[in-house]
Amino acid sequence: MRKFFRTVVLLAGLAAAPYALAQAPAASAPSASAAAPADAPAAAASDTQSLDQSIQSLKSEAVDLNRDLFVLEEELLFPANTQVAVFLSMDVGDFFNLDSVSLKIDDHEVANYLYTPREVAALIKGGVQRLYLGNLKVGDHELTAFFNGKGPNDRDYKRGATIRFKKAIGAKYLELKINDRQRRLQPEFEIKDWE
C-alpha cells in the first residue's frame, strides 16, 4: 500500500519529467529542424497536417505572385530596351566602412544612397547592390559617381570616377567597383562597362 501510494504520486511527478529530446536552440532558420513530426503528440495531428499543407501551398503561391509582380513592375517601368542599371561592389582586404554613394547621369543626380552597417557587411561578403535602375535614350552618356567612407584607422576617404558610355538598344549594365587592389590601404574606385 505504502509503495503504491508513493509510486502513484511519483508517477504524477513524472508527468513533469523532461523526456523531451533536445529541441533546437535559438537559431536562425528553424524550419527543417522544427518541423520534424512523427513523435510530436500534436493535439489533432491530421488537423495540423492539412492546415500546414494549405499554408505551404499558399506561401508557394505568394512567392510566385511576388515574382510576377516584380517582373511586371520592372518591365513596365524599365523596359529592357531603354534600361540602364548601375551596380555597386566592394572588394576590399581591410575593412572599409562605406558611408554613402552618389550618382549622376548626364549631370543629373539620380541616386544618393546612405549605407547602414548591415548593408556594408553584405557588400564586403561579396554581395553586389543594384544601386540604380533607370531609362536612357540611345546615344552617348556620361556617368559620374562619388563615394565616401572611412578606411582602417578611421581615415576619411572620398573618391570619384567618371565614365562615358554608349547606350544602344538593350539593357546597359555598369558596375561601380570599390577595391583596394593595390593593397596600399587605400580604396580605389573604378567603373566597369559590361558591354
Binding site: N66, L69, F70, E73, E74, L77, F78, T82, V110, R130, L133, G134, N135, L136, K137
Partner: peptide, 18 residues
C-alpha cells in the same frame, strides 16, 4: 528594395524619346 521603390521616383526617371 525594389518592390517598394516609390513609383513616383521611377516615373520621374523615364527618358525615352517620345
Amino acid at each position: 528594395m525594389s518592390p517598394q521603390q516609390p513609383v513616383r521616383a521611377a516615373l520621374a526617371s523615364l527618358l525615352i524619346v517620345l
